[in-house]
Computed example of a mutant assay.
Amino acid sequence: MELYFLGTNAGVPSLERNVTSVALRMLEERRSFWLFDCGEGTQHQILRSPLKLSKLEKIFITHLHGDHLFGLPGLISSRAYQGGEDPLTIYGPRGLKQYIHTSLELSESHISYSLDIVEHDGGVLFEDDSFRVEASLLEHRVASYGYRITEKDLPGKLDTATMESYGIRPGPLYGKLKRGESVEAPDGRILHASEVQGKPKKGRIITILGDTRPCGSVLPLARDADVLVHESTFLHEMKDTAHTYFHSTARQAAEAAREAGAKRLFLTHLSSRYKYEDQIMQLEREAQEIFPDAVIAREHVLYGIERTSGS
């Protein structure tokens, strides 16, 4: 899994940064990627990235402010022209369905693939054998959600030497043992999965928050996350402004990461007032004073999400 930031600016695009969008690339896990928010210009950013719209499987919208969803109509319309034929599911707050349907209807856009729009009020939104996605309401001027993506634990490595001693060769019996089942060896002996299966590989947790000021929902969403993506609109010297406009400072994002026991923190949704590199690094340094593993999210950089050592 990897994160790829397509937009990290707050409110409006700037010459340095586009408005909010981040991709979670899961080529090994699902042969697809998921998109979190879709600010204006996101499809142009994707064209300049290693991502392919044909591989886009799901979009999660945090809230209905323009800098987080104005890119949706164009991206939805263009996806088929870039090979996107598989179904696409979009999750977001109530009102999202009306926005998308009205945009597509008035522009007479015709979608050739299956489009499913799921409006929600939080809770578990998606779950299969590999992943679980849940959402919680944050504290912003409109309903804004944070998403917690949990990769389920993977089976441990099989002890092939022991299986060979039972006369078991690669094939269907391997699959049964990996699923935790017992099998009968060619000589009639029973081999239990617990005898040959190593410790499960712990799944990763990624938390991606929408716009918010500090609130009680952040901690459970970010608890023990391998990666936390947190808005950091202002330096802490502007904490009163941040509170008034329902945003967070870099320091507050770092405090949330530390309290939640997260492993890495990406700072995004930066105010346009921070144009120059020394200003950007000031935001990063402020966060690192509280949480050393905090970095500014850079656009068009692929960030690997490694498994925790020993997991």
Rank of each mutant, 00 (worst) to 15 (best):
F5M: 04
S14E: 00
L15H: 01
R17F: 10
V19F: 06
V19T: 15
T20H: 12
A23W: 03
A23F: 10
L27M: 14
R30Y: 08
L35I: 07
F36P: 04
F36R: 07
D37E: 13
E40K: 11
T42A: 07
H44N: 13
H44F: 09
I46K: 05
K52D: 04
K52G: 00
K55H: 15
L56R: 10
K58D: 12
F60T: 12
T62S: 15
L64T: 01
L64A: 04
L69A: 04
F70A: 07
F70G: 00
L72D: 10
P73E: 07
I76C: 11
S77R: 09
Y81H: 12
Q82W: 10
G83H: 06
D86Y: 09
D86R: 15
T89G: 10
Y91F: 15
G95V: 04
I100G: 01
T102N: 04
E108I: 01
H110Y: 10
I111A: 10
Y113T: 06
H120L: 05
D121H: 09
G122M: 06
V124S: 06
E127F: 08
D128L: 13
V133F: 10
A135P: 11
R141I: 08
S144L: 02
R148L: 09
A161Y: 13
A161Q: 13
M163W: 13
G167A: 03
Y174G: 05
G175W: 03
K178V: 11
E181P: 01
R189Y: 06
R189I: 04
L191G: 09
H192R: 13
H192Q: 10
G203C: 12
G210M: 02
D211E: 10
R213E: 14
R213D: 08
P214Q: 03
C215P: 04
P220V: 07
P220S: 02
L221H: 12
A222I: 11
D224Q: 14
D226P: 07
V227G: 06
F234K: 09
M238Q: 14
K239E: 11
D240I: 03
T241A: 05
T241H: 06
T244E: 05
Y245D: 00
F246K: 11
R251N: 02
Q252R: 06
E255I: 11
A256I: 13
R258F: 07
A260L: 09
A260V: 12
Y274M: 06
K275F: 02
D278Q: 14
A287P: 07
E289T: 08
A294E: 09
V295L: 13
H300Q: 14
Y303I: 07
G304S: 15
I305V: 15
S309A: 12
